[in-house]
Simulated assay, not measured.
Amino acid sequence: MNIITKSGQKKVLSWNVIKLKDNNGKTTGIICSGEDITPRKIAEEELKHANDYLNLLIRIAPIATIVLDREQNIVTANEKAMDLLGYANDEIIGNPISTIISNNELLEFTDKNDLSIELLKKDGECIDANIATSAIMDNNNHKGLIVTLQDISELRGLLIAPSIEENTERKDTLELEGSYTYIQDSGDLNASYDIFSTMVKQGRPGLCITRENPAKIRSKYNITKTPIIWLTKTKTSEYPSIDPTELFKLHPTIENFIKKVNDGIVLIDGLEYLILENDLKSVIKFMEQTNDTIMVSDSRLILQIDPLIFDTKDHHLLKRWMRSLTDEDTYND
Rank of each mutant, 00 (worst) to 15 (best):
D185K: 12
T181L: 07
N222V: 12
I66W: 04
K6Q: 13
K233Y: 02
G157Q: 06
I18D: 14
K10T: 12
K220Y: 06
I31D: 06
T5P: 03
D279C: 04
C126M: 10
S33Q: 11
L247K: 07
L145Y: 00
D188Y: 06
I92T: 06
S192K: 05
D311C: 08
D69C: 02
L155E: 06
E118V: 15
T27L: 05
T99V: 12
G264L: 06
N256C: 11
F310I: 07
T232R: 06
I265Y: 08
D22L: 03
A161C: 09
N78W: 03
D83Q: 13
N213V: 12
D269V: 09
S186T: 15
A161Y: 14
I74Y: 05
N24A: 09
E212M: 12
I160A: 06
N291Q: 15
I223C: 07
I66L: 13
I42N: 12
G157F: 04
W15E: 09
T253N: 02
N2S: 08
G206R: 07
V67S: 01
I268R: 02
E79P: 04
I275G: 01
E288C: 03
L145E: 00
Q202C: 05
K26N: 14
Y331M: 05
T245L: 10
T245V: 11
P96F: 02
A135T: 11
L119C: 13
D111E: 11
C208W: 04
I302V: 12
N51G: 00
N141Q: 15
I228C: 10
G86C: 10
D329F: 08
N113F: 03
L303T: 07
P307L: 08
W321Q: 14
K171R: 13
A215T: 13
L54Q: 01
K41R: 13
E71C: 08
I3R: 05
V12D: 07
V200W: 01
N332G: 00
K19E: 13
K235W: 03
R40H: 11
A64I: 00
I258M: 11
